[in-house]
Each structure stands twice: as structure tokens, then as C-alpha cells.
Design a protein around this nucleic acid. Structure first.
Length: 535
RNA sequence: GCGCCCAUCGUCUAUCGGUUAGGACUCCAGGUUUUCAUCCUGGCAAGAGGGGUUCGACUCCCCUUGGGCGUGCCA
């Protein structure tokens, strides 16, 4: 019987005042994984010395999570409060020789660097490697790494550098194939007792090694060590750097699975080494594909829909957005798309996450949104619609009974909450008539007369659907036109638009007084055919 | 430049060597409807290119092309 550790995952955003859509997707996947495995979903606010990490920014973060119903387990960790622990870890590394202080060439002071370890369980031998080096640039070997210049296609020198550990068995050759330097054992160099600057090097040879890890979504990942440099873990101003803080906090929170965006892949190679040097076993990693915009580019503020708040204010339902976001880079494997929270939790696995970036399709999101809105309890729909309505001056102080009736009439035909803008004709008399509708339906031969007749009849008609319909049909029959033909002209007259719910119901809701007043207005001011200009 | 990764309809995706390559959104046509929406029916639409491996490749390998990410004393 294998005992499996409880899954512990975390969402570790830095609060900036906005919650990026790619970020919240990472939160969602972490949450789903925790709920699927019966694990723990933690929140760690990475608010280290950023002017942007204001209380307001933190509140925005929590609101976004609450809105999407991403409930957090346990205490929230604030990274800014962990500074002492981070610095202690740096001290520990320095004491064990895994880190060193280095003066900045730019005069910024002394920073602490993590030294990519000479040996690690995460290393894998690749084999002998050789690099062409530009002879005009002196090559230096020191405990802080190797600095050299490669030769570009055009023969120019291209500055490069790597950690010392990358160059196991390093040998430097000149143009005459003489070996100018050999790094037999690294001890003296590592101790900082021997630095070398070698001139006229044309070729370097060494045993290439690489860092490897198995990503739960991307599979086996590897990166040559010569592409990795020692990294700053404590700035010259004394502030711990992201890499250190992030790694230390993951250890303290006992994170078992790190599920984050693809943009962190390169960091992972280094974090694994940091963890190793700190004496900890790295957790499992899963890197999620990036979400890109309609142009296939990464989302930025300029795209408009980059933040969770944008979707909320544009009238999307949180469950619809949640559902849609799960489908970006993941699919249950069958043809289901609209899935409840429970279904998502049951179906979610990291194995089914894809690793290619995916584009947002706002139309598909909107379609899904309309499905969610249609299924909402009327009370819920009303509450959200009321907020959206309040965005408009005419929507702030509406008649309750009328509002409820309009909601039940329109819920099934609302795609976004912001669509409530079209309800204006129920709540205001300041209407903008659709010019096309006026031209097409009101300014037609005989319409003015028929509407006048109808208006007279309606005066004495009980204002209910049946009688209204009957009255309209009577006028249509008297004028020998098809039943229903008069509906659109009436609709334009009383609602100023060409589309909407059923006309009779609409008129009932508007009431007799209002309906008749609008018919009067239309008959007097809109039906007159305007003289054709030009043509 | 170098390194890491990715590649199925316009978009999101299914397929884990043998399928008429399926579904969804969009779009188009038709039906239902007093208009619109919903709903129903049907349609358009895909394995980037080139080499291998194999009896057989969208699926495995290599190259090319394209794209993303990284290459900070940002996170």
C-alpha cells in the first residue's frame, strides 16, 4: 500500500490592482486540482516591496476570487511578512558555500548570488561539447562563472556567460590547438582563490550537463547548464528576490504541486537547484499553456479584456467565465463543454491539459454566458440585472413590479448583463428611434392611417394580450393586409426598436397610457414621409 | 543571437498507428416564432511543408517553416 501525500497547491499572484485573465486561469486549475484530489488550495500573496501591492490591490484580488467562487483553504500567506525567513535562507546558502556576495560592476553595491551547484541530483550528463570562441575577447573563469564571447555568423563577438558548473572538464584552446587552460578540479576556483583571464581562445571544450525535470503537462524538460547563470537572490538594497522568496515559501507551505503559467518554465530549472541546495526535494511541476488574444499575441492591457474585472463589468456570469476558462487548454475528453462545478472537479486531471497556447474566443464565451443566464433562478438574474441597469441614469429608480416582469420576459434572450441597455423603453420616455425602423415600417403608405384607427380602438380595449391582438387583427383585416403585418410598425412606434419580446406582452407591460401616448407621438411626428434628399 | 517549448477546421478542442478525422463557437441555408432571441434540421470548414520508420501515420523520429516563452539586482 503506497501512502500518498495530501496534495497541497497554491495560487501565488502579486497584487497589482488587476487580476490578469491568465493568472486567474492558473488559480482555477490549481483550485480544480485541489478539489479533484481532495487536497488543499492555498493563497499566497506575493506582495514583496512593490508600490503596487496596496491594500486596494489586495482587495481587488480577493474580490475576483470570491466572484469566481475560488474558496481558499487555510490562512492566506503574505510574502512581505516573510522577509526575515528569506534572508535567513540566503544566509544559510552563503554559509554552506552555495551562495556568494558579489560587488556590482555598476557600483550598485553588493548583492548575494546563488551559485548553480557543481553537483545535483537534477543533473544529467549530455556529453562532450565544443564552442567556437572569439579570440579578441579575453575569456575569464572565476568562482562566479565563465565569461566569454561566441562568434556570430558575421564573425562578430557575442558576449555570453554561464555558471561555473556548466563547464565540467573545461579546456581552452588557441588557434594553434594548444591547450591554454584546463579546469581539472573546481575546488580552488570555487573557493575564489583562483581567477583566470585567458586571451586568444578560439575554442572551448567541456562535458555538457543539463538540468532535467518531469513536467506533469509538458513531459520531460531539460536545459543545458551552460544556458544558466548564477542568480541574484538578495539585491544590493537587501531585498530578497522573487526566486528565493517563492522557493522558501513553497517549502514552508509544503506545496506538493506547482501549477503555474508556461512563462515560469525557465525559472523552474533554477528553482529546482535552489531547492536542492536548501536541502529540499522539489515538488511536482505543471506548466499551463498561455492564453493569447485574438491576434495570437499575449494579452496586455491594450486588448481590453485582459482582466477579470473587465469581464465582470461587461456583464459576464462568473460560472460561465469559470467554465469557459477551464476549456482553454483542457477538455474532459468527451464532447461535454458546459460542465457544472461538480462535473469539472470530477473530470479534471493535469494529464489532460494541453501544452499549446490557446486563444480566447469572446463569441464562444458570450454564447456560453447566455446559456448560464438562461438557467439562473429569476431572483439571481434580477439582482445582477439590477446592477447592470443602474449603469444607466434611467435604470436607477425603476418600478419593482415592472422590473420583475421585464426580467422574466428577457432573461432567456439576454446574452450579457450589459444587454439590459435595450430595456430603456420600459423605464424611460426619452427614446432614440431606430431610423431604419422608422423608414421601413412607419413611413409606409397607409401606416399612419391604420395606426390612427388602431389607436382609437385601443382607447376602449381592455389592455390584455388577447384583446390587443384582436384589435390589431381587426384593423389589419379591414385594410386587407396580412395578419401580423402591422406588428412591426406598432413595435417601432411603441419601443423605438425593431426587436424585442412579444409585442402584445410588451404593450401590456408598457400599459395603456404609455402605449397610446407613443402611438400618438409616432402618428404625429414619425409617419410623415420625409422628402427624399438628393437622388 | 542563444536556449526551452509548441503545431488538427477561422477559434476552442476529441483522436493516445488502422475513423467517412468527431463535437462546440462563428458563418450560411431551412424550419418553428406576431419581430428578435431561444430551439430544431442541414451545410461550409482541418492534420503547416519535406523526409524517414511501418503492411499502414494526424498520431513515432529528423529537418524546414511558423508561433510562444525565456535570456533582469521584474515577478
Amino acid at each position: 500500500m503506497v501512502e500518498t501525500k495530501t496534495v497541497r497547491v497554491r495560487f501565488a499572484p502579486s497584487p497589482t490592482g488587476h487580476v490578469h485573465i491568465g493568472n486567474i486561469r492558473a488559480a482555477i486549475f490549481n483550485w480544480l486540482y485541489a478539489r479533484h484530489t481532495g487536497g488543499v488550495f492555498l493563497l499566497r500573496v506575493e506582495d514583496t516591496d512593490l508600490e503596487r501591492s496596496t491594500d486596494e490591490a489586495k482587495a481587488t484580488l480577493r474580490e475576483a476570487m470570491e466572484w469566481l467562487r475560488l474558496d481558499v483553504d487555510g490562512e492566506v500567506m503574505y510574502q512581505s511578512e516573510r522577509r526575515a525567513a528569506h534572508l535567513a535562507a540566503a544566509g544559510e546558502l552563503e554559509a554552506s558555500g552555495s551562495a556568494y556576495a558579489l560587488e556590482s560592476a555598476a557600483g550598485r553595491g553588493t548583492a548575494v548570488y546563488f551559485r548553480i551547484p557543481w553537483n545535483s541530483k537534477a543533473y544529467e550528463e549530455v556529453g562532450p561539447a565544443r564552442l567556437e570562441v572569439h579570440p579578441d575577447v579575453p575569456l575569464t573563469v572565476s568562482h562566479a562563472g565563465v565569461q566569454y564571447a561566441l562568434v556570430s555568423k558575421k564573425g562578430k563577438a557575442v558576449e555570453a556567460s554561464g555558471c561555473l558548473a556548466a563547464f565540467k572538464g573545461l579546456r581552452l584552446y588557441d588557434a594553434d590547438d594548444h591547450c591554454l587552460y584546463e579546469l581539472a578540479s573546481p575546488e580552488t576556483v570555487l573557493a575564489g582563490k583562483a581567477d583566470f583571464t585567458v586571451k586568444n581562445v578560439v575554442r572551448m571544450e567541456f562535458q555538457r550537463r543539463q538540468v532535467v525535470f518531469d513536467d506533469l503537462v509538458k513531459g520531460r524538460m531539460s536545459k543545458p547548464l551552460d544556458g544558466i547563470k548564477d542568480l541574484v537572490i538578495v539585491r544590493s538594497n537587501g531585498a530578497p528576490v522573487f526566486h528565493l522568496a517563492n522557493v522558501c515559501d513553497d517549502v514552508v507551505q509544503e506545496i506538493t504541486h506547482i501549477i503555474r503559467g508556461d512563462d515560469h518554465v525557465e525559472n523552474t530549472f533554477r528553482h529546482i537547484l535552489l531547492l536542492d541546495a536548501l536541502g529540499h526535494t522539489p515538488p511536482a511541476y505543471a506548466h499551463l499553456p498561455m492564453i493569447v488574444n485574438a491576434q495570437g499575441k499575449p494579452y496586455s492591457k491594450r486588448d481590453g479584456d485582459a482582466y477579470v474585472g473587465d469581464f465582470r463589468s461587461r456583464g459576464f456570469d462568473p460560472d460561465a467565465l469559470f467554465n469557459y476558462l477551464t476549456l482553454l487548454g483542457w477538455a474532459p475528453g468527451d464532447d461535454r463543454e458546459k460542465l457544472s462545478r461538480e462535473e469539472l472537479i470530477a473530470a479534471f486531471t493535469l494529464q489532460r491539459v494541453r501544452s499549446a497556447p490557446s486563444q480566447m474566443d469572446l463569441k464562444k464565451l458570450a454564447h456560453m454566458n447566455s446559456q448560464y443566464l438562461a438557467e439562473l433562478p429569476l431572483e439571481t438574474f434580477m439582482a445582477e440585472a439590477r446592477e447592470a441597469l443602474a449603469e444607466h441614469p434611467w435604470g436607477r429608480d425603476v418600478d419593482e413590479a415592472l422590473f420583475k416582469s421585464v426580467c422574466s420576459l428577457f432573461q432567456s434572450r439576454t446574452q450579457l448583463y450589459s444587454d439590459v441597455a435595450v430595456w430603456v423603453y420600459f423605464f424611460s420616455d426619452e427614446l432614440e428611434y431606430d431610423p431604419k425602423g422608422v423608414r421601413k415600417f412607419l413611413q409606409k403608405e397607409g401606416v399612419q392611417e391604420m395606426l390612427t384607427t388602431l389607436r382609437g380602438r385601443l382607447e376602449s380595449t381592455p389592455f390584455e394580450e388577447g384583446p390587443i391582438e384582436a384589435a390589431i387583427h381587426t384593423v389589419e383585416n379591414e385594410n386587407e393586409i396580412k395578419e401580423g403585418k402591422l406588428n412591426q410598425p406598432i413595435r417601432v412606434a411603441v419601443t423605438a426598436t425593431m426587436v424585442g419580446a412579444g409585442l402584445y406582452e410588451t404593450m401590456v407591460l408598457l400599459g395603456k397610457e404609455r402605449s397610446l401616448a407613443r402611438l400618438d407621438y409616432a402618428i404625429e411626428n414619425l409617419c410623415a414621409r420625409e422628402e427624399a434628399q438628393g437622388e
